[in-house]
Design a protein around this nucleic acid. Structure first.
Lengths: 359, 359
DNA sequence: AACTGGGGAATTCCCAACCG
DNA sequence: CGGTTGGGAATTCCCCAGTT
């Protein structure tokens, strides 16, 4: 999974792919170290506003996690510099800044945290007698990306000014003036990572830039966060309307992209529905609900006929809402037998189809 | 209800209540006209942002209505100048600006619309031979109040600067530097209305300022707008949980301030529930629901036992949500007999505030 | 053909719970 | 205790339906 950037010094003279920039006059090229991204950043990230870190300076903000980070086990973005030769390299320096995910041009969002200043990350490493091995691994475990106000175009442009003024240009950089940022286009960035080294003759070399995979604004993660059901008990015969309240607005989600699935609970204790996560039991989906209505905070579905599923009088199920590749937490719903009444099967507004009037 | 400011010229010399400001050297005082507010502004108003009017200059924004304005019958703020005497007064001028409701000090929100410039309203009237009667009535039928960004204190202060620079000081004005505006304190203003006149000798006179009743930010109008019920049919025996979905967030409303009432429908046709508004039938409230839970867009109530109300098998009711003096539209709910199951009486899940960390 | 009036989306910011 | 995380409140702004 690691993106590698194996740099061969001689390549620099080939017109096809100049991969090393020489800042001083041409010289015999030393063998450069290679730079690889060992762990990519998480796909989604909640960028933090300046107002969220300004309060006290000890504050980093939300940490940028690594892609393999899990709930209980954090990981971070990690890069490795290999092929370090103390006979050739006297000092290494890693520089990181943000670029737009698309164009890879300078981006107004900036890095903040350990080893960051002026919006970019920079860390030196001296290769001396104390240096062991041929590798240098850097873990960005205190790194945050700070976003800027995008209400007005003016704000964005001012932030771009600052970015241009503060952050050094990395090799292969796209000219920032080539890119017009709008409030919409700003939610995806990459880390631009570049290695510099000083050879034993004191010569400085810049290695071409490596780009991380995109980091997308958290808000693009459009899952449906369910809040609760009502009613939570419906007849086995199906046809009941069930309201699923959502915590987050369902904005931007298509009704047709939503699937609501029911899954039987196999002899699960009726105790904790929350802690009974992923017990490893088979997830055999028994039915889907049809989607009746989608509103901002409400999803109305119609239950299917469950009578063929069980002969019991009660059937407890998990209800899961899936959309755009995301999956909600489970809600518990109980189906009961003994058909009776017209419970919950009539809608408020169009109570047209009222099943069986009891007169 | 009209606030009157009958000004007697001689009063000016009494130390208790100097009500006229003389701008030039003292002279025998002409009899001033009086200024009364015939119609107060609406109690609530949605202030408009600059961004909502700048697009095209023909745009006034949301009009400030009069207090007696109704849905189908608009009215506007109206003032009357009485006691105009062509033998004494040669020109009249009305000036209006905004002040804070509390301190009556200059306020950064500003007036916009007909006869407005630089944030204040000003209208002249020549009293010549063409002038009939002794009154001048002014209706502010194209007047809006523009609010300013209050995110940062800086924005507010900048707006105050502008206000001070642009808007003339009215008599009796509180010094604006006396007031510290915060984002919170800005949502209530008054109109400050002042009459100036020129007498037949060309002397200018300023009459003391009249203040309207407060105009409050729309957001302070906290009513609950109901969207729908689920389920809309519940057993007569009561105890069912009913979800009431609200269109507006219930933010700032106290659970204890909410009452949910049920009212029987007397032989109403089952036809249109929407059009059956206010048929004049007695509104005899039969029961209240207890409030179970209040969330942003959701109000959960428990139905009362209705078995004593009717011997019928079905009972159709109106459900109304009351809060802070406001009353929601009605929703229709049906109670049915033949108890069965414990439908809707079980809660799905006690949504934890935060997902528990898995270690 | 505009504008108003509203609904509600998008953006910022605040803050409480939780964690080391 | 201070920081991180998330939830969600508050604020702005966008935009369209309905009117005039």
């Amino acid at each position: 999974m690691a993106t590698t950037t194996q740099l061969i010094g001689r390549d620099v003279l080939l017109p096809e792919q100049p991969r090393i920039l020489v800042l001083h006059e041409p010289q015999p090229l030393p063998q450069p170290p290679s730079l690889t991204i060992e762990e990519q950043p998480a796909r989604f990230y909640r960028f933090r506003y300046e107002s969220e870190i300004e309060k006290d300076s000890g504050r980093v903000g939300g940490l940028l996690l690594g892609r393999s980070s899990t709930d209980g086990n954090k990981s971070f973005v990690r890069v490795r510099v290999s092929g370090i030769d103390p006979a050739v390299h006297s000092q290494l320096q890693l520089t990181v800044c943000t670029v737009s995910a698309e164009e890879k041009a300078p981006h107004p969002y900036y890095l903040h945290g350990d080893h960051c200043s002026n919006g970019y990350f920079q860390l030196k490493k001296t290769v001396d007698s104390a240096f062991k091995g041929s590798e240098w691994e850097i873990t960005f475990n205190r790194l945050a990306v700070i976003c800027v106000t995008r209400k007005s175009q003016m704000d964005i442009e001012r932030a771009m000014e600052l970015r241009r003024a503060n952050v050094p240009s990395l090799p292969d950089a796209v000219e920032s003036s080539k890119v017009e940022y709008t409030s919409r286009s700003m939610g995806s960035i990459r880390l631009a990572i570049s290695l510099q080294f000083t050879d034993t003759r004191g010569m400085h070399w810049w290695q071409s830039t490596v780009y991380s995979d995109p980091i997308n604004d958290d808000k693009q993660k459009k899952s449906i966060a369910v809040e609760r059901l009502n009613p939570a008990e419906v007849p086995l015969t199906g046809g009941s309307l069930v309201a699923i309240l959502t915590k987050t607005p369902t904005t931007g989600i298509n009704k047709t992209d939503i699937k609501v699935d029911l899954q039987t609970l196999h002899g699960q204790s009726s105790a904790g529905s929350a802690s009974a996560e992923s017990t490893g039991s088979l997830r055999n989906f028994v039915r889907s609900c049809s989607i009746v209505e989608l509103k901002k905070h409400l999803l109305v579905v119609r239950t299917p006929d469950m009578t063929s599923i069980t002969r019991n009088d009660r059937l407890k199920c998990r209800l899961t809402v899936r959309s755009n590749g995301f999956e909600s937490e489970d809600l518990e719903i109980v189906f009961f037998g003994k058909e009776c009444g017209n419970v919950g099967s009539a809608d408020t507004r169009d109570s047209r189809k009222r099943p069986r009037q009891q007169t």
